[in-house]
């Protein structure tokens, strides 16, 4: 393998990681400011212009926080849990395409880290690892609230994984490929959100549940379980959980944009490849705003309702969607 390629990969990986980490930091600010607007507040605006340094201040504060490990906790698992949670959130980014190719210094560079032929499978595989982190966190804390949160999380994430996975099959069938780049290219004419509207909705709902966002934030339901699985965490370990949740928020938005909203493409017109990441970025911002809006407005689901909704509504709908998509595609030839 030629050396330049390896260097290119390393550079791209570092850029993606940096994007994930700064993206997380600024998503917290974005969320706080957007929530504040909705809730007739102002939000953090003291640190730096428009509060732009607030994430930095938060980060510094969390780094210097005392790291408490409960005396009765299982120390190895307790430390391991945040790591297990945050890693999948970061490696999801490897397969998400930000554009096609750009020429830099006479070298053709792909605007994605890897075009895996089973990209969608990779996504589902990686996202489902995170549940281990949360369950382990809940268990190892040796705290009843944390354990309840961990139990809720495992049940919820496993149930919604099914609907999530099935909702991805629609775009796969339409594109005839599991590669995310191929799926985006297949949306040249029409975005999959129109023919696959049901799958899109199911994906968003199951995605919200998968990343434990409101209204599916049962595992950390503040009003019931104080903070759920991360009750006992402080300092950077807590920050890692936080990071995982927010990076996954961005990831879910990116996947939804890629699979259903044409990814880095605008409809009908071709734009220079250098601007394509910007298009995807704007789509992600819009989807993220949707998530924040939902959080500001909706009450939380009840745990048993959530399970019933996942198994009795989302799963059959997703199955039906797969079935009808397949039938129609076959009939069309």
């Amino acid at each position: 393998m030629d050396q330049a390629l390896i260097i290119e990969w390393v550079i791209k990986a570092v850029i993606l990681l940096l994007f994930g980490l700064t993206g997380f930091a600024y998503l917290t600010l974005y969320e706080r400011r957007a929530l504040a607007r909705i809730q007739v507040r102002i939000g953090p605006n003291r640190a730096g212009p428009w509060g732009l340094l607030q994430p930095v201040a938060d980060g510094i504060k969390l780094i210097f926080n005392q790291e408490l490990i409960p005396a009765t906790a299982d120390k190895v698992l307790f430390v391991l849990a945040p790591i297990i949670t945050v890693l999948p959130a970061l490696i999801i980014w490897a397969v998400i395409p930000w554009g096609r190719q750009v020429m830099i210094g006479g070298r053709e560079i792909n605007l994605y880290l890897a075009d895996v032929s089973v990209g969608v499978l990779y996504l589902t595989a990686v996202t489902s690892i995170a549940v281990y982190g949360i369950v382990i966190a809940g268990w190892s804390s040796n705290n009843k609230y944390a354990m309840l949160g961990g139990l809720r999380a495992s049940a919820q994430m496993v149930s919604y994984e099914l609907a999530l996975g099935l909702s991805l099959i629609g775009p796969i069938l339409m594109a005839g490929s599991m590669s995310l780049v191929d799926i985006v290219e297949a949306q040249k004419g029409i975005w999959f959100v129109l023919p696959q509207f049901l799958a899109f909705i199911i994906f968003l709902l199951a995605g919200l549940a998968e990343i434990n966002r409101a209204p599916f934030d049962m595992p950390e339901a503040e009003q019931e379980l104080v903070a759920g699985y991360h009750s006992e965490y402080s300092g950077m370990k807590f920050a890692l959980f936080f990071m995982a949740e927010y990076i996954k928020m961005i990831a879910i938005a990116a996947i939804a944009a890629t699979l259903f909203l044409g990814g880095y493409r605008l409809p009908f017109i071709d734009i220079p490849a250098a601007f394509e990441p910007l298009v995807l970025f704007i789509k992600i911002l819009i989807l993220l705003f949707g998530m924040i809006w939902v959080r500001a407005t909706l009450p939380r689901f009840r745990y048993d309702r959530l399970m019933a909704f996942g198994w009795k509504v989302l799963l059959p709908l997703a199955l039906a969607n797969v079935f009808f998509t397949a039938v129609i595609l076959v009939l069309k030839g």
């Binding site: 929530l35 809730q39 507040r41 409101a214 503040e222 009003q223 500001a296 909706l298 939380r300």
Partner: peptide, 10 residues
């Protein structure tokens, strides 16, 4: 308590 947090501020 039901996590409809905006209502609180309204």
């Amino acid at each position: 308590d039901l996590a409809a947090m905006s209502m609180f501020l309204y």
